[in-house]
Amino acid sequence: MALTRDLLDIRTIYHEPAVRDFPLGGEILARFPDAERIVVPSHWNIPELHGNAGSVEDWVRIKRSTLVLGVKKGLAMRPNGRSAHFIAPSTSNGCAMACAYCYVPRRKGFSNPISLFVNVEQACAAIARHAGRQGRLPAPDPIDPEYWVYDIGENGDLSVDAAVSGGVRALIALFRTLPNAKASFATKAVNRDLLAYDPQGKTRIRFSLMPARIARIVDVRTAPIPERIAAIDDFVAAGYEVHVNFSPVILYEDWEADWRALFAEIDATLSDAAKAQLKCEIIMLTHNADLHAVNLGWHPKAEDLLWRPDIQEAKVSEGGGTNLRYRAGWKGRWLVRFKALLAETMPYCTVRYAF
């Protein structure tokens, strides 16, 4: 499909020895018969990818040409309380896209091509067991009025993963069968193959949006913003719940005018049916000094927008790392202003979560 041709030309596959023992592993290897195959002890232990500062210069080439296959060891659910009630075991890590603000390189090293975990049946079984223990959602909450919501794409973009693997289809099929649970994932790609997955209202796709002229700088290798907006109606018609992530909100001179124009474009594009079910998340930019240093090696133009120590401050994240966020007092004021701009043009768009 076009999505694969545009983003991926797999020449090298690193894989753990056990990958061949799983049906999905065999399926993926067969999809790329001409790729060089390199057996590695662990998807985390690939010196030429992880922690290799020299790979910065080949950032995009590696993302386009390299695939990593592994077996997911930990299958526990993690409480969330923001985008979802629970974070499901990741069936992927890394991405073919190259957003300059992505947090994964902070943890994974200088290059983070797609890593797919082939034991998707085990992940599905773990989710089903966990959901079965929850019972019904006791009361409507800001996450969902009816279902427990599981984020199934925390560390990757499932729209792109679905172009490589049948694992995403299996996850969406699973949630059709769970009477008390719904899947959710964020995406910056438009993969129209997903329109045939028949989610029956049990999968929420969150299209990430920002002003197009800023996305052209920081959302590297992603679908254009107008294409993402135009896809919303089709995904709603195909049975998905579709929300939007205004993420990340990056502050710069005249940011308000750009966001007002984006809201107007969304309002003019969406059908009444899409508007009736639309909700959003608002996530202000989080940056990181180490990622800043990495970006200077491959995309310094993005850092003119992302690295603003004059209006940012250090803060320890939930994971224990030290990141940069907009200064607390001002961040609150900017969020208030952002919500006011949204309400002026899209009063029907409920803010589920703002951070």
Rank of each mutant, 00 (worst) to 15 (best):
N80T: 11
K63W: 05
M77K: 11
V68S: 01
R82D: 03
R106P: 06
R107W: 11
L69C: 07
K73S: 09
V104N: 05
R61P: 04
F86W: 11
V104M: 11
S65M: 06
R61G: 06
W59S: 06
T66N: 00
V68P: 00
Y103L: 15
G109E: 07
C102Q: 10
V104I: 15
G70R: 05
T66A: 00
L67G: 00
C99M: 09
V60G: 04
G81A: 12
C102S: 13
A98L: 07
S83R: 08
F86H: 06
G81L: 11
F86N: 03
P79Y: 10
I62D: 00
A98Y: 04
R64N: 02
S83E: 05
F86D: 00
V71W: 03
V56D: 09
A98N: 06
K108M: 13
S92H: 03
A100C: 13
G70Q: 05
V60F: 13
G81R: 11
L75K: 12
L69D: 01
T91S: 00
K73Q: 08
Y103N: 11
L75I: 14
S92L: 01
G94I: 05
S65K: 07
G94Q: 02
R61D: 11
W59H: 15
A88M: 02
K72P: 02
A96C: 07
M97I: 13
R107M: 10
S65W: 04
G109Q: 12
S111T: 12
R78L: 11
S92C: 04
Y101Q: 08
A100M: 12
P79L: 11
N93D: 04
V68N: 01
A88T: 01
K63A: 05
G94N: 03
N112P: 04
E57A: 15
K73I: 12
W59T: 11
R61E: 08
V71D: 01
M97G: 03
K63N: 06
P89Y: 01
R78T: 15
P79H: 11
P79I: 13
C99L: 07
D58K: 13
S65F: 04
